[in-house]
Simulated scan of single mutants.
Amino acid sequence: MTDPKEGIRQGPVQPTWLMDADYTVIGKNAQAEKFETDYVISMEYAVQVAKGTCCAFHTDKRACKNCPLENKWAASDGFPITFMGRDGVPYEFFGKLLKKRQNWLLEIRYIDKPFESEGKSMLTYLNEVRESEQKRIARELHDGIAQSIYSLMLETRGLKWTPVEEHQQKLQAIDRHFADVLLEIKSMATELRPSILDDVGLIPAINQFVDQTLEMTGFIIRVIVDGERHDLSGRGNVVIYRSIQEAVSNALKYSGENEATIRLAFAQTELRVTIADEGKGFIYDPYHLGFGLLNLRERAHSVGGDLEIDTGMDKGTRITIILPYEEESA
Score class of each variant (00 low, 15 high):
13 V>E: 11
281 G>Y: 10
19 M>G: 02
244 I>Q: 02
11 G>D: 08
278 E>N: 13
59 T>V: 00
135 K>V: 05
128 E>A: 14
204 P>F: 08
147 Q>M: 15
196 I>Y: 05
99 K>Y: 08
248 V>M: 03
185 I>V: 15
155 E>D: 15
177 H>C: 07
295 N>R: 05
278 E>L: 09
304 G>W: 07
159 L>P: 07
43 M>S: 02
168 Q>Y: 13
146 A>E: 14
141 L>V: 14
256 G>R: 11
264 L>A: 05
220 I>G: 00
23 Y>T: 00
319 I>M: 09
28 K>P: 00
320 T>I: 04
313 M>Q: 14
246 E>D: 09
300 A>S: 10
73 W>Y: 15
299 R>V: 00
294 L>H: 06
263 R>I: 03
114 P>H: 09
261 T>F: 05
107 E>F: 05
213 T>P: 03
303 V>E: 03
183 L>C: 09
48 Q>G: 06
307 L>W: 01
226 D>G: 00
66 N>A: 14
95 G>S: 08
72 K>T: 11
70 E>Q: 14
101 R>N: 15
306 D>H: 01
246 E>W: 02
292 G>K: 00
185 I>A: 08
46 A>H: 00
259 E>G: 06
330 A>M: 08
151 S>H: 15
305 G>E: 05
231 D>V: 00
46 A>E: 03
248 V>L: 10
269 T>F: 07
136 R>F: 11
119 G>S: 12
95 G>H: 05
101 R>F: 10
195 S>F: 10
18 L>K: 10
99 K>E: 15
320 T>H: 06
62 R>Y: 07
113 K>H: 15
176 R>G: 06
165 E>G: 08
108 I>E: 02
4 P>W: 14
88 G>D: 09
11 G>V: 03
125 Y>W: 11
56 A>L: 04
247 A>C: 09
141 L>Q: 13
161 W>Y: 14
308 E>S: 09
119 G>V: 01
27 G>P: 05
320 T>R: 04
